[in-house]
């Protein structure tokens, strides 16, 4: 079980740090592709949806959760959604590859490393990817006047990392439990796509009607989108922000144990 720590085992930090060289080479190998996915694609979204489509939408703060333009409304949600997409991308095929195709995880656990170390190092890499992608994205957007305070974007950035990590843990655990990559199709179509469209990134969830609005409020992505937006627009409702943060932190914690137990079971077969 995830909670058992053998007497002779490495600490979580030591075991994780021993994989630094590995992840550094992964980064050197993949960063060029990462640039396209992390910055270019979301920029297309901002231009197409925020600027061009947004040109047809009246910037009414009463209807846009306090945003004075559609661009300002959509940007915080887009970045939070983007964080989810990156996290899902990094914890689906790469995890299945290491378990099923290249079997590199099997060679890694033949050393003093344990599944929890592998999960932790992978999560650190996801966090690094999230930090660079969301950080640069937020910097690029700053000149567009979409942030209402100087400190809000920093907290929004933190909430984007949080929502990304929540999905990283949940999806990693899912990836360790499935046998075929076709299960990713289900995840993408029935999980990622509806979340992207209906968690309040593109329109206020009040437009969904009372029932679906509450369904949207139950999704982890909405908590991230809402938190990110409140901080960017300086419309923070602190009790709600605390609730959003607690939900996301809880998802991160659950995701961690779900991932570690999943990988332990899978690699012990």
């Amino acid at each position: 079980m995830a909670s058992t720590v053998p007497d002779t085992g490495l600490s979580l930090v030591t075991g994780t740090l021993r994989q630094t060289d590995y992840w550094w080479t992964v980064f050197k190998r993949t960063w060029k592709g990462g640039v396209i996915n992390s910055f270019v694609s979301p920029l297309f979204y901002v231009v197409a949806m925020g600027v061009l489509l947004g040109g047809f939408i009246a910037g009414d703060p009463a209807k846009l959760e306090g945003a004075t333009s559609y661009l300002a409304f959509i940007v915080p949600g887009l970045v939070a959604t983007h964080a989810m997409t990156i996290a899902v991308g990094e914890t689906t095929y790469p995890v299945m590859g290491a378990v099923k195709w290249h079997k590199t995880y099997y060679s890694m656990i033949a050393t003093p490393l344990e599944p929890r170390h592998l999960v932790a190092a992978h999560m650190m890499f996801v966090l690094f990817r999230l930090a660079t992608a969301c950080g640069v994205f937020m910097l690029v957007l700053a000149p567009f006047g979409v942030f209402e305070s100087w400190w809000g974007p920093f907290l929004a950035f933190g909430s984007q990392l949080l929502v990304g990590m929540a999905f990283a843990g949940l999806v990693y655990g899912y990836s360790t439990r499935i046998r075929s990559e076709s299960a990713f199709g289900v995840l993408f179509r029935l999980g990622v796509l509806p979340l992207t469209l209906f968690s309040g990134a593109f329109f206020p969830i009040s437009n969904l009607g009372p029932v679906l609005e509450w369904v949207a409020r139950l999704t982890p992505l909405w908590h991230g989108v809402n938190l990110s937006r409140m901080f960017c627009l300086d419309t923070v409702d602190w009790p709600l922000a605390a609730l959003n943060a607690v939900v996301l932190v809880a998802a991160v914690v659950v995701g961690w144990f779900w991932s570690v137990s999943g990988l332990e079971q899978r690699l012990a077969d």
Partner: peptide, 12 residues
């Protein structure tokens, strides 16, 4: 109980 210590001295 001593998996990591054992694996540190094994070649596989």
């Amino acid at each position: 109980t001593d998996g990591p210590a054992i694996r540190g001295r094994l070649g596989v």
